[in-house]
């Protein structure tokens, strides 16, 4: 049944302050079962508040969140939920293994399977046996994050909420996170990720909500083509653009709805409308005999969302 959010609003009133701060303003969206859903937006946009409401840690002023038709703090939901907080504070006196055993028990999972499932979880996140026996206060930031992720995934939850999951993790850890997310997606797990790491979000998410000023300004479906204009940087073999000539390139670009922005010896920049426009441009260039060796957007699609807050190109916040 997935996650349904309807008209969610949340305000904070600071102690002794007269005015309230509106963190969420009528957010409505649906997250399908088995989907990896990203939440991005600038600082103070309301992302953490949104995640807090999804988890049932914050009480909305109005609106509702349901997970499989239940309130988010319903024990039935808690049984199938995993959570990795951004400000990861673990019970530092425990060892990594004891910590996972503790959460396995809190999740009311069968005692008989505990040792095996904890070992599997440790192995999944690449924490070796000696590291698992070490007290958590001796863990590096990256190890803590890996342990936190293992904790979130223990017991094979059906819903996983990750707040900045790759924060402080080395490149090998980032690759591991991506692999794990692909694995859980393969099991039909619904994952909600709140992250500032746009490249990672773009790589793993099916859809991304761009949150700003407490509203969902756009929902980008990453599996489909980009709906926003962008600049495409095209590199060709040395001298190829010079031989074609600036006028010819401008005419060729106009013919496929693009525009030549600037031209250097082995590189040209074109403004294109969307993914389809980029594909048409590259095809036209190759068709005109220009030996293209690389074509890449100057910003990723999600960076574009940040740089050009969506207005006319906004997609409705429904799946």
């Amino acid at each position: 049944m997935g996650i349904r959010v309807e008209g969610l609003s949340k305000s904070y009133r600071r102690l002794l302050a007269v005015e309230t701060v509106r963190a969420l303003n009528g957010v409505t969206l649906e997250i399908q079962t088995g989907e990896i859903f990203g939440i991005i937006g600038p600082n103070g946009a309301g992302k953490t508040t949104f995640l807090g409401c999804l988890l049932g840690f914050l009480r909305p002023d109005s609106g509702a969140v349901t997970i499989d038709g239940h309130a988010p703090d319903d024990l039935e939901v808690r049984r199938v939920t995993g959570y990795l907080p951004e400000r990861l504070v673990l019970d530092r006196w425990m060892s990594g293994r004891a910590f996972l055993s503790y959460h396995h028990a809190l999740a009311r999972l069968p005692h008989a399977a505990r040792a095996r499932e904890v070992d599997v979880a440790l192995e999944q996140v690449g924490l070796a046996a000696d590291a698992a026996s070490r007290p958590i206060h001796r863990y590096s930031r990256g190890m803590l994050q890996r342990l936190g992720l293992a904790q979130a995934l223990i017991g094979e939850p059906r819903y996983v909420f990750l707040d900045e999951p790759a924060s402080g993790v080395d490149p090998a850890g980032v690759v591991l996170f991506r692999r794990l997310l692909n694995e859980v997606k393969g099991r039909g797990v619904t994952v909600v990720i709140n992250s500032h790491q746009l490249e990672q979000v773009e790589r793993v998410c099916d859809r991304v909500a761009f949150v700003s000023g407490g509203r969902v300004e756009a929902i980008e479906t990453l599996a489909a083509g980009a709906t926003l204009a962008r600049v495409l940087r095209v590199r060709a073999l040395s001298g190829a653009f010079d031989r074609a000539g600036r006028d010819a390139l401008e005419t060729l670009a106009r013919g496929v709805g693009a525009q030549l922005a600037d031209l250097a010896a082995a590189q040209a920049r074109f403004a294109v409308a969307d993914d389809d426009g980029a594909a048409r441009l590259v095809a036209a260039l190759v068709g005109a005999g220009i030996p293209v060796i690389e074509a890449a957007p100057e910003e990723s699609r999600l960076e574009r969302l940040f740089l050009e807050p969506p207005t006319a190109t906004r997609t409705p916040p429904t799946p």
Partner: peptide, 14 residues
């Protein structure tokens, strides 16, 4: 204040 309670209450614990 440490934030540990969030992790506990994300589990099926009233």
């Amino acid at each position: 204040s440490s934030g540990v309670l969030q992790l506990i209450l994300a589990r099926p614990v009233r």
